[in-house]
């Protein structure tokens, strides 16, 4: 059983929701990424999504775009991201790490080389924003052979037929994009999300997470009532951007802990 599966099973047994924070590897610099990952764990993260910076992040809003630019300016690369995961794995064998990024850096490394390096580093899942299932059969086969889950996105524009196709292609969990827009955009339509998530769960055969636009404990809690996992990215990256370097880890930890507490109140309410 994969680390991602084990994590969701444990959470389900505990009646809790998964908290999945996102940070961009190498933002604000690569020495801080590992300490930030530790802070996320201390704050109660269940899975860490680690952004692989790309020069042309078409699906990201301004906050994560700037994080990518900061990271690239300091020389971050896919190979170095894998090095960070390897270092993290040496001290934490339980928390799943999912790489999130774009196709081109992976294509430049090569599918086989990437899958093998990611497996050795201890990567558990990979989400490639610009790989819809129909364009990445060869990549999917490579990562699957390496025992890595490929996580796919579903969107408010996706049809029921599409739910099934994407669920078929993916493993680990499905990631529902909670709004039409880029990462970090405003205004969630909770009614829309509430009507979609049960229909996705009905065909998913795996946990369903929701992300894009979750900004605080209140929205996290409302999403937590609907989904198995809550993904928070831009809001954390904002915290990193706004904090002086020596306060980055502490501020991120405080923010994420607030979300954790809110999500666990939910568990309390149900138990």
């Amino acid at each position: 059983m994969s680390r991602i599966q084990i994590t969701f099973q444990r959470l389900q047994a505990e009646g809790r929701k998964a908290l999945i924070p996102f940070i961009t590897a190498g933002d604000p610099d690569d020495e801080l990424t590992l300490p930030l990952m530790r802070s996320l764990i201390k704050a109660g993260a269940d899975i860490i999504e680690l952004g692989v910076p790309f020069s042309d992040p078409m699906a990201d809003g301004p906050v994560i775009q700037r994080a990518s630019e900061r990271a690239l300016a300091k020389g971050m690369s896919l190979a170095r991201v894998l090095g960070i995961v390897r270092a993290f794995r040496a001290e934490d064998t339980a928390t799943p790490v999912v790489l999130m990024g774009y196709a081109n850096p992976i294509e430049a490394m090569g599918f086989g080389a990437f899958a093998e390096a990611a497996r050795q580093a201890g990567v558990d899942g990979v989400l490639v924003v610009d790989y819809p299932p129909e364009e990445c059969a060869e990549f999917t086969a490579s990562v699957r052979a390496a025992g890595i889950d490929q996580i796919f996105l579903l969107a408010p524009t996706s049809s029921e037929q599409r739910f099934r196709e994407v669920a078929q292609a993916g493993s680990g969990y499905l990631y529902y994009v909670s709004l039409k827009g880029v990462t970090g955009a405003a205004s969630l339509d909770f009614d829309e999300i509430a009507s979609r998530i049960p229909r996705i769960r009905a065909v998913a055969g795996m946990p369903v997470g929701v992300g894009f636009g979750i900004r605080d404990a209140e929205t996290a809690k409302r999403i937590g009532m609907l989904a198995d996992a809550v993904v928070i990215g831009s809001r954390i990256v904002q915290e990193i951007e706004a904090s002086p370097r020596e306060r980055v880890c502490a501020n991120v930890e405080t923010f994420v802990r607030g979300i954790r507490v809110a999500l666990d109140e939910l568990a309390g309410a149900y138990s």
Binding site: V129, D130, T157
Partner: peptide
């Protein structure tokens, strides 16, 4: 060629 975009744009 092909279609390499985020899921939201696939139906469009």
């Amino acid at each position: 060629g092909g279609i390499f975009v985020a899921e939201t744009l696939m139906p469009a």
